[in-house]
Design a protein around this nucleic acid. Structure first.
Length: 476
RNA sequence: GGCCCGAUGGCGGAGUGGUGACGCAGCGGACUGCAAAUCCGUGCACCCGAGUUCGAUUCUCGGUCGGGCCUCCA
């Protein structure tokens, strides 16, 4: 089965072929760690995590190398550290930990490499040196600038004609620039800012060169896939590409596939911290299960824009509830049956294959979800038909297909009872036992009174043939 | 101004030149002591105009509307 991916460079969907199937490389631009990241920052995290999983599924876990960088040199970090009166590293470590915790809660696997700018400084300086030697960059007044004239293909990725880059845009025109489009590779630090020794004086790297150098060091150039948000196409990725090619480090190649995810919008407005309509993943995770947020982030195709609303999250939660209910019901049914005999449910296997096929079609998550539901329906039907081997096989396939996407990783019971502590659980179990007794005595008013009491605890009880089950109701 | 993307039912959201995915929500029924869950059934759409075609939501052109980038936001 071929994997097809939409490549921004060619503006078309094309079959994916890694340069070396035993060593598939992917790089995605990661966070600047100066605060908790908002949910929009996690769209690429989840999208490219899904791609990471699909690649591992296709080429083998150890054949895929995924690097996502951490920017830990930045003005906002400096300011935060100054405000709190703590070392910069304290800030970056703190928010990197928080970021990784949030990403994990959203079901993202840890990337193979997570390079930091501060730990890649030698490679950055070396690459700048190579660019100068290759006549791709020049030093001026303590700065080193990339010479955009030196790269004939500059603007190719973003499809921007060179002339238009000056005509319409307000480019920062500095006296030390040969051309307004030239961008900084190295610059002097301001007083009090972190600085590193370099052949061009003490200073710090420009943003774009950091990523190029981190790719080079973590994966080696060229790479198979480079990912990030659409907003990074220009100037960031355009500049990365120029640097990578002109440095001569990748046989004049950089990335074979450029993938870009669409923006996440808050209601009508673009989501950004300056507008104040921030939804931190850290906060959302207190209210919603990580899988529900992950589902919501994958509800639309990754290249489309996505409106982030409460309704979207609730629909995602309800969709997952349905799947977990099938898992729960089928597990209860199977509990009283002999263990599976290895027979395979061919119909369910076809749906399982459809999930993978949908993902291989440029990560068509909505189609994958549809196949997941079809598979779930078959498991449900097998439960109703009391066909134990069909249930066992189908359920296994459902879990496997869900896991491929980073879903259905929880035990169904804990999914429905998430948020309940042991104290609440024992109280609920006691009340359910009481209610069971009342129902056995056909004491309906008492049974309903207890159900009301459970409802007051935000617990919903469901009577089934094998006793009552319960779950935590929707968060208020 | 330049470049790029999008417009599908109450909501989210795929896809296709001709039998109207999928999910959430709604409605009717079954089941249930009543509910919930589940099952059966059901209503609801392809921005506008022109063209190509036997036939267009799907292709082409033109509009309208919305969004993104051109400013170290994923």
């Amino acid at each position: 089965m071929t994997l097809s991916l939409y490549d921004t460079m060619s503006r078309s969907k094309r079959p994916f072929a890694p340069k070396d199937p035993s060593r598939v490389t992917m790089y995605v631009c990661g966070p600047t760690v100066y605060n908790f990241a908002h949910i929009g920052n996690f769209r690429p995290v989840v999208v490219f995590d899904l791609l990471f999983r699909v690649l591992r599924d296709a080429y083998g876990d150890h054949a895929v190398l995924y690097a996502a960088n951490v920017t830990d040199v930045d003005d906002k970090i400096n300011k935060k550290a100054a405000d709190e009166g703590v070392p910069i590293r304290t800030i970056t470590d703190r928010y990197l930990d928080a970021y990784n915790a949030d990403a994990a809660a959203l079901g993202a696997l840890r990337p193979t490499f997570q390079p930091r700018v501060t730990e890649t400084m030698d490679a950055i300086i070396a690459m700048i040196g190579d660019l100068i030697r290759n006549n791709g960059a020049y030093a001026a007044e303590g700065h080193v600038l990339f010479d955009t004239q030196a790269f004939a293909d500059y603007g190719k990725l973003s499809k921007k004609p060179m002339d238009d880059l000056i005509a319409g845009a307000r480019v920062d025109v500095a006296p030390y620039k040969n051309d307004p489009r030239d961008f900084v590779l190295w610059k002097p630090s301001k007083p009090g800012e972190p600085e590193w020794e370099s052949p061009w004086g003490k200073g710090r790297p420009g943003w774009h060169i950091e990523c190029t150098a981190m790719i080079e060091e973590a994966l080696g150039l060229p790479i198979d896939i480079h990912g990030g948000g659409v907003d990074l196409i220009f100037p960031h990725h355009e500049n990365e590409l120029a640097q990578g090619v002109c440095s001569g480090h990748g046989e004049r190649e950089y990335a074979h596939y450029w993938l870009h995810n669409g923006f996440l919008n808050m209601g009508e407005e673009k989501m950004s911290k300056s507008l104040g309509n921030v939804a931190l993943a850290h906060d959302l995770l207190k209210t919603y299960p990580g899988e529900a947020l992950r589902w919501a982030l994958l509800a639309g195709h990754y290249r489309q824009e996505l409106e982030w609303t409460d309704s979207l999250i609730e629909q995602a939660k309800s969709a997952l509830d349905r799947l977990y209910r099938v898992l729960d019901d089928s597990a209860r049914f199977l509990a009283g049956e002999p263990s599976a005999d290895g027979w395979q449910n061919a119909s369910a296997a076809a749906d399982h294959a459809a999930v993978r096929a949908a993902l291989h079609d440029d990560l068509n998550t909505p189609a994958a979800f549809a196949a997941l539901f079809q598979l779930a329906d078959k498991v449900r039907a097998a439960v109703m038909a009391k066909d134990a081997r069909a249930v066992a096989s189908g359920r296994g396939l459902l879990v496997e297909a869900g896991n491929l996407m980073g879903f259905l990783t929880a035990d169904p019971q804990s999914w429905f009872q998430s948020g309940a502590d042991d104290d609440l659980k024992s109280r609920v179990e006691a009340l359910i036992a009481d209610r069971h007794a009342a129902r056995a005595a056909k004491n309906w008013p008492e049974a309903d009174r207890i159900r009301g009491e459970l409802a007051a605890l935000n617990v919903e009880v469901m009577d089934g043939p094998n006793g009552a089950t319960w779950r935590i109701k929707e968060q208020p």
